[in-house]
Amino acid sequence: MLNVENLHVAYGQSEVLHGLDFKVRPDEIVAIMGRNGMGKTTLMKSLMGLVPTKSGTVRVGDGEITNLKSHERVARGMAFVPQGRMIFGTMTVEENIKTGLTVTGESAVPGELYEIFPVLLEMKHRRGGNLSGGQQQQLAIARALASKPKVLLLDEPTEGIQPSIIKDMARTLKRIRDERGLSIVVSEQVLSFALDIADRVLVIENGEIVHEENRATIDEAKVASFLSV
């Protein structure tokens, strides 16, 4: 579903990603792991068009999105849950979800989103900025799902969230994948969470993919060694 070939991304003169190649199938959850500063967030942002791509191609399904603007990428089926969640703080929960409806043209929040995240229905008239971290994370995912994506990107979703809620989130993400046949790419530093949800793990180091392994055959110690400082 998501097809990345020879992706180079640079901030001005300094290149951060040196030619990444990977594919994500429909119905698959891929975890991208790596220490701080190895290029995970840059990869996410470049896939979303928030950081310009230097060279290479990115495709969703059959359509190339390499040079499209962010909102055009959303229309082609990309959706993004950023690091730090970035909820629209002074807007209500309901309005936050509705911003995600822009590309679908719908005007009411689909009921199934509230079914996945019942807490958001309870709080739909509260301001997004007044929710707790875990609730904001759910809101950010609901907002991303509202645009009916084919590929969902999550950048460090476990950051600042308590362990019991991380477990819930893993369950929810798998449920969403099963119900909607989504491809999910999640960047992560927490190994237990990644092993919990991912079908495949990619390790990124200094802007290159240095290790790739299916969940079934993974050697935990080896991946952990990539993450240790």
Binding site: L50, S70, G89, T90
Partner: peptide
């Protein structure tokens, strides 16, 4: 209002 609050995020949700 979304654009005002966070221009980058607004475009990343499809605005």
């Amino acid at each position: 209002r979304a654009v005002v609050l966070n221009r980058m995020m607004a475009s990343a949700v499809g605005i």
